[in-house]
Structure formats: C-alpha cells, structure tokens
C-alpha cells in the first residue's frame, strides 16, 4: 500500500512537469493549428541551458531555470518569424516540415557540440517526507515550479491584454485582425510562450533526471499523449493529462517491467483518439 502511495505521489510530481511541456505543445496548436515538431529539441535545449549555466557558469540551478524560461521565450519568437510565419497560412504539412527542419537543425548542431553522452545537473538538496513517501527535494521543487508556471500562464491568458489577444486569435483570427489585434505578433508571442513552456519543462527535468541532447524526443512523445488526453488546444486539460501520464509511468513498474510503460501510454493514446478524440476534458465540437 505504501509503495502504491509513494509511486502515486512520485508520479503526480513528475506529472506537473510533463504537464507544462504538453501545455506548450497544445497552446501552439490551439492558437495557430501548428504541430510543433521542434518541441522535443527545445525541451533538450532547456536541459542543456540549465546544465551549462549551472556547471560552466556556476549559476544557482533555479535561477538557471528562470533564465532558461526567458531564453525559451525569445528563441521561440525567433523561430516563429524565421521558420513558421512564412508558412502559417499554408496547408498543415508545410508547418510540420518547417518545425521538423528546425528540430533537425537543433539536434544536428547539438549533437556535434555535446555528443550524445549522458549529462546530469549535480544538484543534491536531500529529500522530504510527503506522507508515507520520501521524495527528492529537487522533484518537489520541480513540481512546485511547474504549478507556478501553469498558474502564471492561466492568469496571463485570463487577465492581461496580450493574454486576451491570444485567446481572441485562438477563437477567430480574422475577427481579431479586424478589431485591431496585430495577429502576426500575437502568433509569435504564442509560439514563444509554447517554446518557453517546453524549455522550462526540460530545465526542470534536468534537475531530476540525467539526459542527453537526444532525450527531448521521448518527452515530446509524452507531450503528444498528454495533449490528446487533455484535449489538444486545452492547456488546463494538459496539466491533468500530465498527472495521469506521470502516474502511469510511476505505477507501471510496480506490476510489470518498465519497458511496458510506453506501450501502455500509446495504447491509451490510440484508445482516446478512437473513443474521445477531443480528449478526456475536451468539451463540445
């Protein structure tokens, strides 16, 4: 029983971190109907950003996470204007190819610089008791930061002018233009926020797990599963989807070999697509 609760708590904590990565993917999809195939590469960049800031420059790990967030935002805006904007009105295949190209460039350059040897951020803050579970402090902090980021995004979208503009463009881009919203800038900001979430998620994962420049791919796949669970285009759903996936990941090893985890995740993915294609929390359509 204790083992079960321990795994559940462990999974929930990870789930928040996976959840914000998926929020990034689903935000971009919701606003501009673009599947960002550079998502995983940006998660990996987030990992290396914290790694380099921490090990090479000696910056405190969580300040490094904050710096990574800002870099992620700016990098996303740059990617948008260089690679995405020119094909934003083209059929979806073009945006897939454009973001996949960005992915290949990042992975290629990253591999030549960092090789594929595993890295980790040597950060030991001890552990804390959460009920019957003993969890590494880094994991608890990662979850708390992820919750803060998710809450911050929610408040930003709900109560600020740029946030309202993003929701308006999501709702109806032409209508947003005719009431005076510069939609190209809003799309760029949305893309930047999406990549910021991916980068922060990667940064937080790096404080918990070892990683390589290629690690982003598997987290990108998790983001897709979570996005579909929560309903693509529904950021709050993504957070809950993340919790579900985090728990699957931590509970599966209790009953079967860990290698079954992705199998179960993708069975779930396919079942959701067949039964409830708008996601568990997807509304009308």
């Amino acid at each position: 029983m204790d083992a079960l609760i321990r795994s559940l708590i462990d999974g929930l904590l990870l789930g928040f971190v996976y959840g914000i990565a998926a929020m990034g993917l689903t935000l971009i999809w919701g606003v501009m109907n673009v599947i960002n195939l550079s998502h995983g590469a940006i998660i990996a960049l987030g990992m290396f950003s914290v790694y380099l800031l921490f090990t090479a420059l000696g910056i405190s790990a969580y300040i490094a996470v904050a710096i990574t967030a800002v870099l992620g935002l700016l990098f996303g805006i740059v990617i948008y204007f260089i690679a995405v904007h020119r094909v934003i009105d083209a059929p979806e295949l073009s945006t897939l190819l454009a973001t996949y190209a960005v992915n290949m460039i990042i992975i290629g350059v990253g591999t030549s610089i960092f090789k594929t040897s595993p890295r980790n951020v040597p950060l030991d803050l001890g552990s804390v008791h959460l009920g019957p579970a003993v969890v590494p402090t880094t994991r608890l902090i990662a979850a708390l930061v992820a919750i803060l980021v998710a809450a911050g995004l929610f408040l930003f979208l709900k109560y600020t002018r740029p946030g309202r503009y993003i929701r308006a463009v999501t709702d109806n881009r032409d209508a947003a233009e005719i009431v005076g919203v510069p939609s190209a800038q809003v799309l760029a900001l949305s893309f930047g926020l999406g990549t910021m979430l991916a980068a922060v998620s990667g940064a937080l994962i790096a404080t918990v797990f070892p990683f390589t420049i290629l690690s982003g791919g598997s987290y990108e796949l998790k983001s897709f599963v979570i996005g579909v669970l929560g309903g693509l285009g529904n950021p709050v759903g993504s957070l809950f989807g993340g919790l579900i996936l985090g728990d699957i990941e931590s509970l599966v090893p209790l009953v079967m070999p860990t290698t079954w985890t992705p199998v179960l995740e993708f069975v779930l993915f396919v079942v959701i697509l067949l039964v409830k294609p708008n996601g568990l929390f997807g509304g009308e359509e």
């Binding site: 309202r164 503009y165 929701r167 308006a168 709702d171 109806n172 032409d174 209508a175 009431v179 005076g180």
Partner: peptide, 17 residues
C-alpha cells in the same frame, strides 16, 4: 465573427482594442 468562447463583456473589450 464574434469571439464565441469569450463573454459579451470580453467581446466588447476586444472591440476597444
């Protein structure tokens, strides 16, 4: 061409962009 997921008030605020 309204913002159908927004409230009436929010639509009016959008109008005043």
């Amino acid at each position: 061409q309204l913002f159908t997921n927004m409230t009436v008030q929010e639509n009016l605020e959008m109008g005043a962009s």
